[in-house]
Nucleic acid binder design. Structure first.
Length: 709
DNA sequence: ATTAGTGGTGTTTTT
DNA sequence: CACCACTAAT
């Protein structure tokens, strides 16, 4: 049994997996089998009886990683609920639900997501009469979150400027409101857990005695607070097995601190730092390119990946004239590869910012290529979903102000801004939650009647769903609240209807998978895993589109990275600070190391951004990749498969109406070629065509009989 | 008092 | 281009 577990590990991996009860740092490069080591370690601990399920705590950074770990574990060992596996936030949530009394939280406290948080802050800002020109709610939100992420309550801060005084006052009011409504934001989950552990000796000792083996994935992405949480749980004697890669630290903007790696080494007096440097993922060229790039970073622990694989294909670089051509070129390549027998799902289109997905989507759509976009608008953050969940909360007897305000006049029922304002004033005087103010008839006259209708609706809903299981309850709520019919009558409401149906699906899935399929835990689940459900464009084989941040931890045969321009990647906001620039470079490193076989890079000389055309120069990162590894996309390359290309052009009709760079053409005399440059307009358009066998020629489109293929 | 329509404004990355 | 705040129409 032990043999099958450890036989496929290389010496370093084996050493890491079979460490005795001690803290250790595993510096695991991209593609070095990090997840495998982590899961093998857990399996090894269990199978060799070093640890029982309940003594293990494994924490990951994303839900995706947690799920993957659980999936891999369940293949080798029976999964036990006593084993704590999840994200920092997820595990803190679990802790706080178990110990809500000690944490001074209501048993069913709500989790506030970014949107809810912002609207709460907006409301507070209004009542505090804060000038939102000078102090925009977003700024307040950022202030609050960054303080909380560093463990600071409002009471612990003394403002250094009058401006900060305003922010701080708002923070204090925000804290009071959260307590009053029994809600917790993301940072609160962590902060509150730490405070409870610190102040409650009994609980602290209990968990310290329990979790003898603590395993941490993506350690470089932990914040100071998360590190403190780990230290609290580990006590003096427990072993922390931390896996990380300083070169892949890309969440600095959110408080992640790769210095935790060094801190951990020092504070835990580590005997073992194990480097996993053999890469099992990428071809040599890709790896060399990534190594070359990352070597420009000064602040590194040092590590050099190597592979036994061959060099593979060179890295392809395409210089497009503009964003449209760039997208067109990428899609052309995608179709090319598909014709060579590769599946769409093994191709990923990565970009720096979500806004870049639009043009790629557009081009893919026109070319009939199935695709799937990850991230962007998260499923549970869509308005219609939030409406439905707000109704669900109210129907379940959770009357937080956010939920009330979200649906009190949606669909419209004659409750306008004025009525709401009166209601809020009345509620404030008596220090009531909004729903209670409605129930107590604090608003007189016509407005009060409208409010009564609303509260009757909620009563009705509450009655209708009692005794129903989760998914039925949601279905009922969506129907009875007339959300469904509202979107049915909307001209453009089909997407919203699909999403609502998807929500019902998500609920029934949750019902079968969770061991507490209650409304309350579903709501918590929805806040914590906002990104995991996507509206299913359930084409099984589709091109994957996502930001580089979202791609971390994933791998694909073919990776396209577009928008490699100064100002976009590296992004404007990070050009001035050296640490920020290094983080951008690590981001590029992450992007490149996602690729197994083929890596395509591209940039555009100009692109539409912020509704204006921006002229960028190629990213410095391109110059940091060893030149010999890069191949400018040449005619020869893109025409390798021109034979099949013509045959299939009927299946994939070209939608390119213009003569664009990257367009493949056929000339009756010169044969097949690719357009490399375009000049002039209309009748006078001239194109530079690179022919497969005849070199490049300028041709006037009015005379040359070019056929687009 | 509500709503629909208009014009101005601003966008990195996310548990 | 999408979201917000403000304004004019109902």
């Amino acid at each position: 049994m032990r043999d099958t577990l450890t036989s496929n590990l290389n010496p370093e991996q084996l050493q890491a997996v079979t460490l005795s009860h001690e803290s250790a740092l595993i510096l695991a490069g991209a593609g070095s089998g990090k997840t495998r080591v982590l899961t093998s370690r857990i399996v090894w601990l269990l199978q060799t009886a070093h640890a029982s399920s309940q003594e293990i705590l494994a924490v990951t950074f994303t839900n995706k990683a947690a799920k993957e770990m659980l999936a891999r574990l369940s293949a080798s060992v029976p999964l036990h609920h006593a084993m704590w596996v999840g994200t920092f936030h997820g595990l803190c949530n679990r802790f706080l639900r178990l110990h809500h009394t000690e944490a001074k939280l209501p048993a069913n406290f709500q989790i506030l997501d970014i949107g809810d948080q912002l609207s709460l802050i907006k409301r507070l800002s209004k009542t505090l009469k804060i000038n939102d020109e000078k102090t925009p709610p977003r700024k307040i939100q950022h202030y609050i979150n960054s303080r909380k992420d560093s463990g600071l309550r409002s009471g612990a801060i003394s403002p250094s400027t009058p401006d900060e005084k305003i922010l701080l006052d708002c923070y204090a009011a925000y804290e009071i409101q959260c307590i009053k409504e029994g809600i917790a934001d993301f940072a609160e989950l962590l902060l509150r857990t730490i405070e409870v552990l610190k102040s409650n000796y009994g609980l602290r000792t209990h968990y310290q005695e329990r979790f003898r083996y603590i395993l941490v994935d993506e350690f470089q992405d932990t914040s100071l607070l998360q590190y403190e949480w780990l230290k609290l749980l580990s006590g003096k004697t427990n072993a922390i097995f931390a896996v990380g890669d300083d070169d892949q630290s890309i969440y600095g903007f959110r408080g992640a601190n790769a210095d935790n790696l060094r801190l951990f080494e020092k504070e835990f007096k580590l005997k073992h730092i194990i480097r996993l440097e053999q890469n099992y993922r990428s071809q040599g060229n890709i790896l060399d390119a990534a190594n070359g790039l990352i070597s420009y970073n000064k602040n590194r622990l040092g590590k050099n990946l190597w592979t036994q694989k061959g060099a593979g294909e060179p890295i392809k670089l395409h210089a497009a004239q503009n964003d449209i051509e760039e997208a067109q070129h990428i899609v052309n390549q995608v179709r090319n590869l598909k014709r060579q027998g590769l599946s769409f799902s093994e191709m990923a289109l990565l970009y720096r910012a979500n806004a870049q997905s639009r043009i790629l989507e557009h081009t893919l759509f026109n070319a009939n290529v199935p695709y799937r976009v990850y991230g962007g608008l998260r499923f549970f953050e869509r308005a219609e979903i939030k409406h439905a969940l707000a109704y669900l909360r109210l129907s379940a007897g959770i009357f937080d102000d956010n939920a009330v305000l979200r649906v009190i006049n949606f669909p419209t029922r004659g409750i306008g801004a004025k009525t709401i304002e009166m209601l809020q004033d009345a509620a404030q005087i008596h220090n009531y939650p909004l729903m209670e103010a409605i129930r107590k008839n604090l608003v007189a006259g016509k407005a009060g009647q409208a409010l009564n209708h609303f509260s009757e609706l909620i009563d009705r809903l509450q009655l209708k769903i009692s005794g129903l299981v989760l998914s039925e309850a949601i279905e009922r709520v969506i129907a009875e609240s007339s959300l469904y019919s509202f979107y049915e009558n909307e001209r453009e409401g089909q997407d919203q209807l699909d999403n609502l149906n998807e929500l019902i699906n998500a609920a029934s899935l949750f019902q079968t998978e969770s061991d507490t399929p209650t409304i309350h835990s579903f709501l918590a689940h929805a806040s914590l895993e906002a990104g995991d459900y996507q509206t299913s464009s359930t084409h099984s084989d589709s091109v994957q589109l996502m930001t580089i941040h979202a791609a971390k931890g994933l791998e694909f045969d073919t990776v396209f990275v577009s928008g490699l321009e100064e100002g976009l990647f590296p992004h404007d906001h990070s050009l001035h600070e050296k640490t920020a620039l290094e983080e951008e470079r690590r981001l590029m490193y992450v992007a490149m190391t996602r690729a197994r076989q083929r890596l395509y890079l591209s940039y555009a000389q100009n692109r539409m951004l912020n509704n204006q055309r921006r002229y960028g120069i190629r990213s410095r990162f391109l110059d940091e990749i060893p030149e010999a590894l890069i191949q400018l996309t040449s005619v020869h390359q893109s025409l390798q498969h021109s034979g099949t290309r013509i045959a299939e052009s009927a299946v994939f009709p070209s939608t390119n109406k213009e003569w664009a760079i990257g367009q493949n053409v056929i000339h009756p005399v010169f044969g097949a070629g690719e357009i490399m440059n375009v000049e002039g307009q209309g009748e006078t358009t001239r194109v530079l065509v690179g022919f497969k066998n005849r070199g490049a020629k300028w041709l006037a489109v009015a005379y040359a009989k070019l056929t687009r293929i």
